[in-house]
Simulated assay, not measured.
Amino acid sequence: MSVTLKQVADAAGVSVSVASRSLNGRAREYRISETTEKSVKTTAAKLGFQPSQVARSLRLKRSGLVGVVVPDLSNPFFASIAREVTLAAEQDGYSVIVVDTRETTANEEKLVGQLLARQIEALVVCPVGQTQDHLSAIHDSGLPVVLVDRGFPDSKLTQVTSNHRAGAQQATELLLDHGHRLIGILQGLPGTLPNDERLAGLRAGLAQRNLDFDTTLLAGDNFSERSGYESTHALLRRHRGITALFAFSTPNALGALRATLELGRRVPEDLSLVTFDDIPFADFMSVPLTTVAQDVTALGRTAADLITQQLSGSKPPRLKNHCVQVHLINRNSIREVKR
């Protein structure tokens, strides 16, 4: 049987209200002596008393919960974002509930509704990225909402995103510097901000060298390993002369590696590969991948800071769009091509 507050009060020889105020850090407010406060806390510890979070929430009209929504927890990038937000939120005394939408807007809407039913106090969302209407409605209700990674152009929501365009342009220029001209693109989810911005960066890199963008070199429908695998097979059947692949996510790149292995193509000897995102074990892969690395720590902590500032009573942030810089890590997955 769990120990009740009344049992703690009886054992300490005080009233229930004195015991409650002593345990909730309100002893000075009600002129309870330090000796009494210490006695109550010592007694509670000896008895193994655990305060009811449900009762506390009802009393304070606060749940102490922050919802975190991601599209794919199996993707190391989103798992890292969720972890950073969780660590930062816990430092401020909040608990976090993480849900996985499995890359569908329908699931996103359903799971967000379930989080709201749990009386969350704030919402951090890495959205699927195809619509923001349901998230805008939550923002309009007064609940703090921060989007991470897949934001929306001209949105009124607070957003934390990476400089996708600059990173993709850097990666494209690196491939071009190594002599590659027939580059297959393994894109993510079309219509989402990261995908569209990375395509824009790719186009900009080609334009710098007066090269046209060939849409037949573009394949893929998601940021998943499956999409990368199927797209690689499709592109290499369509263009046998492809010398390099640019994967728009690490799962896309892992799918590409599986496909090239099946096709007997070695990376980088037969086919160069560069990717967006990064993974902790990238340096230990048989083929360390050259990648545009996002600052996951900065993305997660910035989002958490923006949420906790609002929860502390501060005004909503005036700056709506927060851009985190990326950096290119040149490993061993690109070879030189003779022009």
Rank of each mutant, 00 (worst) to 15 (best):
V3W: 06
T4P: 13
Q7G: 03
D10K: 12
A12M: 01
V14I: 02
V14T: 03
S15A: 02
V16S: 08
V16D: 06
A19S: 04
R28I: 01
I32Q: 09
K38E: 12
S39K: 15
G48F: 04
R62F: 01
G64W: 01
L65S: 08
V66N: 10
L73Q: 12
S74Y: 02
N75W: 00
P76W: 01
A89Y: 02
E90Q: 15
Q91M: 07
G93Q: 05
G93H: 05
V96E: 01
V96H: 06
D100R: 10
T104A: 08
T105N: 13
T105M: 14
T105S: 15
E108C: 07
E109L: 03
K110I: 03
L111I: 03
G113M: 04
E121N: 14
G129S: 13
T131W: 13
L147P: 10
S155N: 06
L157S: 09
T158I: 14
Q159W: 06
L175W: 14
G188L: 06
T192N: 11
D196H: 11
E197Q: 15
L206C: 12
D212L: 09
D214H: 02
T215Y: 05
T215K: 08
L218Y: 02
S224N: 08
E225D: 06
Y229T: 00
H233V: 03
R238I: 00
H239G: 09
T250V: 10
P251R: 02
T260N: 11
T260C: 15
L261N: 15
R265S: 13
L271R: 12
L271G: 15
V274S: 12
I279Y: 01
V292W: 13
V292R: 08
A303P: 06
L306Q: 12
S312N: 15
G313F: 04
S314M: 08
S314I: 00
P316H: 09
H322R: 04
C323R: 14
V324N: 09
K338F: 09
R339D: 06
